[in-house]
Computed example of a mutant assay.
Amino acid sequence: MSALSALGFRRPGAAHAEPGIPGPHPAVVLTQVTKVYGGGVRALDEVSLTVPRGTFLAVMGPSGSGKSTLMHCAAGLDSPTSGGVRIDGQEIVGLDEARRTELRRDRVGFVFQAYNLIPSLSIEDNITLPLRLAGRRPDREWLDALVERVGLARRLRHRPAELSGGQQQRVAVVRALAARPTVVFADEPTGALDLHSAHQVLSLLRALVDEFGQTVVMVTHDPAAAARAHRALVMADGRVVDVLDAPTAPRLADRLVALGGR
């Protein structure tokens, strides 16, 4: 049994259950979400989406398709013009900023293309900083298991500049998981990495889903990255125009070409 499994980070029922076994609530639910910006620009047009627990969802589409806006609304970083957003059963539309910040802190993890690590802090302090700012004590056993899983146990006293880009992104993944969130949103997490490092990070994200039941929603422009997901949404003009189960890079690339490229 792995250290993470021993700590209970797995889907209910079995260690190797099929992805998507539901918990008390789906991880994320969007109901007819519309987002209109100034000048009448409709970035999202009545998008409905359910993300079951324990799944890896990729979101793709040409530039301006609405994929980043979808992530921002789903994660509570932005408010839709209309429609509903639930995270772990909690409706977040209509919450004041303080409540939304609290919900994001407790139930949402973020991994971005930029690692957003603080250069002057050690790797360990970078991982635990969000918890400490929230007034929460880190779960030492949990964090030890995470850093062991991502191969960083001997690097905790290093500074970010002493690590490779792939290692820094793995630090960002651990930081996102430190509070045991309901869902991790990853925005172009491999965009700044070489092919080898990108493969390592994508393998890690997939393993966290398949082995330990984490839920991941990843926005990416890369068909090869999206092909690591269980399911891929393809967006265009603010709408979901295709859903591919067990996506492959060639199918995704062909779909993007048909929509006019990235």
Rank of each mutant, 00 (worst) to 15 (best):
residue 42 R to V: 13
residue 30 L to W: 02
residue 104 R to T: 08
residue 65 S to P: 00
residue 38 G to H: 11
residue 164 S to K: 10
residue 189 P to S: 12
residue 204 L to W: 09
residue 253 A to Q: 14
residue 182 T to V: 04
residue 30 L to R: 06
residue 209 V to C: 08
residue 206 R to V: 07
residue 130 P to G: 15
residue 90 Q to D: 12
residue 82 S to Y: 01
residue 40 G to E: 11
residue 101 T to G: 13
residue 26 P to Q: 13
residue 8 G to W: 07
residue 63 S to A: 01
residue 41 V to Y: 14
residue 101 T to E: 04
residue 250 P to K: 15
residue 43 A to M: 06
residue 229 A to R: 02
residue 52 P to I: 00
residue 118 I to V: 14
residue 12 P to R: 01
residue 250 P to D: 07
residue 116 N to Y: 10
residue 99 R to T: 13
residue 184 V to Y: 02
residue 18 E to D: 11
residue 205 L to Y: 04
residue 209 V to G: 06
residue 30 L to G: 04
residue 58 A to H: 03
residue 61 G to E: 05
residue 178 A to C: 09
residue 47 V to Q: 06
residue 116 N to Q: 05
residue 117 L to P: 02
residue 87 I to C: 05
residue 235 M to D: 12
residue 188 E to M: 12
residue 61 G to T: 10
residue 52 P to L: 00
residue 135 G to F: 07
residue 77 L to I: 02
residue 212 F to P: 06
residue 189 P to R: 13
residue 115 Y to C: 08
residue 238 G to Y: 12
residue 256 L to P: 08
residue 138 P to A: 15
residue 62 P to V: 03
residue 83 G to V: 01
residue 213 G to H: 03
residue 102 E to N: 08
residue 233 L to I: 11
residue 94 G to M: 01
residue 188 E to P: 13
residue 183 V to Y: 04
residue 19 P to C: 14
residue 240 V to M: 06
residue 154 R to V: 00
residue 163 L to N: 13
residue 146 L to F: 06
residue 92 I to G: 00
residue 178 A to Q: 05
residue 34 T to I: 13
residue 202 L to W: 10
residue 232 A to G: 07
residue 136 R to W: 03
residue 208 L to D: 03
residue 110 F to I: 11
residue 35 K to I: 09
residue 231 R to T: 13
residue 185 F to Y: 14
residue 133 L to Q: 11
residue 166 G to W: 04
residue 254 D to L: 12
residue 39 G to C: 11
residue 69 T to W: 11
residue 124 E to A: 15
residue 38 G to D: 15
residue 225 A to C: 04
residue 156 L to C: 09
residue 73 C to P: 03
residue 9 F to S: 09
residue 128 T to Y: 09
residue 22 P to Q: 10
residue 109 G to F: 12
residue 107 R to L: 15
residue 30 L to P: 09
residue 209 V to A: 12
residue 141 E to K: 14
residue 162 E to G: 03
residue 76 G to Q: 04
residue 1 M to G: 15
residue 194 D to W: 13
residue 83 G to I: 02
residue 223 P to N: 08
residue 168 Q to L: 02
residue 162 E to T: 05
residue 49 L to F: 11
residue 163 L to Y: 12
residue 33 V to C: 04
residue 92 I to W: 00
